[in-house]
């Protein structure tokens, strides 16, 4: 089996595991990790897509992943901040 297919396959599994954890866990921190795992799944697929045998890697999916990472970081930071505001203290 090709490495890229394996990579895409792992991506789908990560995505689905992420949804599972997001839906069935109650703690905010677990939900956020779950969302980031879902994101990693999509990024896996994009990286696998970039591979073409014998050619240099396609730069477009790589750039999309970089953009996606920044967006994911932003969303996670904002959600964590919501969690802290809800907890009402903040000595962590």
């Amino acid at each position: 089996m090709d490495a890229e297919l394996l990579y895409a396959s792992a991506g789908f599994i990560l995505f689905v595991l992420g949804i599972w954890s997001l839906l069935l866990h109650r703690l905010l921190i677990r939900k956020l990790i779950a969302l980031n795992i879902m994101g990693s799944g999509v990024f896996h697929l994009l990286i696998a897509t970039a591979e073409h045998h014998g050619e240099p890697a396609d730069p477009v999916p790589h750039a999309l992943v970089l953009t996606g990472i920044v967006v994911a970081v932003s969303a996670t930071a904002l959600a964590l901040s919501f969690g802290r505001a809800l907890r009402g203290d903040g000595d962590d």
Binding site: L64, T67, V71, V73, S74, A77, L78, S81, A85, D91
Partner: peptide, 23 residues
């Protein structure tokens, strides 16, 4: 995409600031 991505990051910071003071 990159211009908007930076705006997303700015939005996150503004949102965080709107939620209260720093610890």
């Amino acid at each position: 995409d990159t211009l908007l991505e930076l705006s997303v990051l700015l939005t996150a910071m503004l949102g965080i600031w709107s939620l209260g003071p720093a610890t």
